[in-house]
């Protein structure tokens, strides 16, 4: 009796014990993004690009689009038409990447500034209202003062969309009731 229980039970038990011990398929010999590596000296599987590498189809020849420059001067125009969709994209991206410091209104009163970061200038001062769009592109791309570069976080087109939205913010802060379409004006006047 005892032997038969052992003979019958032991394999079942061993099978149950063995189940879940092998993780070979779970942990395959391949790298997931940013996984650690024992092969490379710096421990990273994500390899830095060789300087000067250009991905196929990504040669940035358009100085206006990719550098915000026209000749040797900062660009004064947008490299593509500013549509409503561009502005809406710009608003969304501005609120993600810029508002923490520059504030939702662009006055430089963002939450991070309230916690002690150096106060950025308001977008509504004359110097920045008159600054060409190329200047903004340069600041987003390369950083300025305490501000880090956002080039790796914000794709080129989005940077231009953000600049378009900053221009909209600048207009909004100096707008008068006369700038509001008649329809909307009625609604505004009803507000307390």
């Amino acid at each position: 009796m005892r032997r038969s229980v052992l003979h019958g039970g032991a394999p079942v038990l061993l099978c149950l014990l063995a189940a879940g011990c092998r993780q070979d398929m779970h942990d395959q010999p391949k790298y997931k993004p940013l996984a650690a590596s024992t092969f490379f000296e710096d421990g990273r599987s994500a390899r830095p690009l060789v300087p000067g590498t250009v991905a196929r189809g990504h040669l940035k020849v358009d100085q206006h689009l990719y550098a915000g420059r026209m000749g040797n001067e900062p660009a004064t125009t947008f490299p593509f038409a500013v549509t409503r969709a561009v502005l809406e994209r710009g608003r969304e991206r501005y609120n993600i990447f810029c508002a923490p410091c520059h504030g939702a209104l662009g006055d430089g009163e963002g939450m991070v500034v309230k916690r002690g970061f150096r106060h950025p200038p308001s977008f509504h001062i004359d110097r920045l209202r008159e600054a060409p769009v190329g200047h903004y592109f340069d600041v987003i791309t390369n950083g300025f003062g305490a501000m880090a570069s956002y080039a790796s976080r914000i794709p080129t087109e989005d940077r231009w969309a953000i600049i378009a939205y900053v221009r909209a913010l600048q207009l909004s802060q100096r707008a008068t009731l006369a700038d509001v379409p008649a329809e909307e004006r009625k609604r505004l006047e009803r507000l307390p």
């Binding site: 993004p33 940013l34 923490p100 991070v112 916690r115 002690g116 970061f117 150096r118 305490a146 501000m147 880090a148 570069s149 790796s152 976080r153």
Partner: peptide
Amino acid sequence: GMPPTETCMSCHSQI
């Protein structure tokens, strides 16, 4: 995407 250290330092260079 996991933020690179630069992203942390965007604020924590000062805060």
